[in-house]
Design a protein around this nucleic acid. Structure first.
Lengths: 230, 230
DNA sequence: GCGTCTATGTTTAGATA
DNA sequence: GTATCTAAACATAGACG
């Protein structure tokens, strides 16, 4: 016997479920690609896999979906070259500007999405009940990664917007015990906006063994970035 | 003859392409649902359909995917009831707060995504070359819809954050000709952040026949909202 | 646990109404 | 354009190494 009709319910058996997951995810991704190519349409899928720390996103580089905007951006100049500065082309110009602004927002959104997914993944991993010290530490170093990236960006001169302000903020420190005390900031609070009571949320996670914390920590962050449009 | 091997390339024939699109989209959505139920996993697909003004999102209510966070939020209180205010539960508390902040951000992101999609859809529709006065007007009323929604929210007392400031901003007016002149604001510029040169981008689209513009305009906005998490 | 195989269930291209 | 039909193409459950 090879195959019976699929019972559309949660597969209880762990290994069978994982096998099915892998197969069907692959199939799904293929279908997405096919739909895109066959019909010339932008399509994207996100799967919050319990088997990977980060969600699967397809296509791997969703920014490809932005070709339309890019194409559009190139248009107005051609229109303008005719020196036909009528109302329509004027609006085109305006929209182009707005599209540029939009790109900026998208960049910001990416960062927020990353934060969101970071939380989701860590919280979802192994069920809610099982969120112990290990997971908290994982969360801590993931946050540290994001933190470093942001600090780097601030240093690189993108001090406009929230960046500069964040750099001046004083951080509340939560010491998880042991280890060398490191003072770091929590710029996420800035992104998230202040609470309704005006309270500032700042966090720091210190690990007991944080001496070599700066080594070998980039992979996840890079994966993350790759998964989301960068 | 019934079927030949699919040629994985853009289908030139318009009607054939649309037919394939409909069939395959349906199949894709089914597959997503199956993957979710069979493997107990959150999955979501977005398809930027050229045949509908708004993108297809599946599952129709992606906020269901947030059950994990919701569940998590309920946990810390139980831990705390034991008055065991150790480091771990303290951190849990902190994370809960952060998760609340996160929800706020997600709401903001939804709005930004809506703006993004709005642009994308309208720009993609009918190809870039075909973006004429008709499309510009469509964009105009779509923007008006968003605008009304925001104004309403501002009036309802959510004056914290950007809302209040935006309400005071003066708008640059682009008159598309004819019609009654209406003074309105462009809060999107606020969302998008100011330009690198500190320039403010403000837009207004006036239609020739804008007398009954306030009627029959809610469907799209509602659809949009429903499609994205609300 | 993973990759490969293959019989069968499922999807869908093309035809037709 | 939409709805239904049908057989070929395709995806994949279960078995095996």
């Amino acid at each position: 016997m090879t195959r019976k009709k699929v019972n559309l319910a949660f597969i209880a058996n762990d290994s069978a479920r994982k096998a099915t997951f892998k197969k069907r995810k692959k199939g799904l991704m293929k279908k997405i690609t096919e739909l895109s190519t066959l019909c010339g349409v932008d399509a994207c899928a996100v799967v919050y896999s319990p088997y990977q720390p980060h969600p699967d996103v397809w296509p791997p580089d969703p920014r490809a979906a932005q070709h339309v905007v890019t194409q559009f951006k190139r248009m107005p100049e051609m229109e303008q070259s005719k020196k036909m500065m009528n109302q329509e082309s004027f609006i085109r110009q305006r929209i182009t500007k707005a599209a540029e602004q939009l790109k900026k927002v998208q960049r910001e959104n990416r960062e927020k999405e990353m934060t969101e997914l970071m939380y989701k993944c860590l919280m979802g991993r192994g069920g809610v009940q099982g969120l112990g010290v290990g997971e908290l530490n994982d969360m801590g170093w993931l946050i540290d990664e994001r933190l470093k990236e942001i600090s780097k960006r601030i240093d690189e001169g993108l001090k406009k917007g929230t960046g500069g302000a964040v750099a001046e903020k004083k951080a509340e420190v939560v010491d998880l015990g042991g280890g060398v005390e490191r003072q770091q900031h929590w710029p996420f609070a800035e992104w998230m906006g202040s609470t309704s009571a005006g309270e500032e949320i700042m966090l720091q996670f210190n690990e007991g063994n944080n001496q070599n914390q700066n080594h070998n920590n980039n992979n996840a962050a890079v994966m993350w970035s790759n998964a989301f449009f960068h």
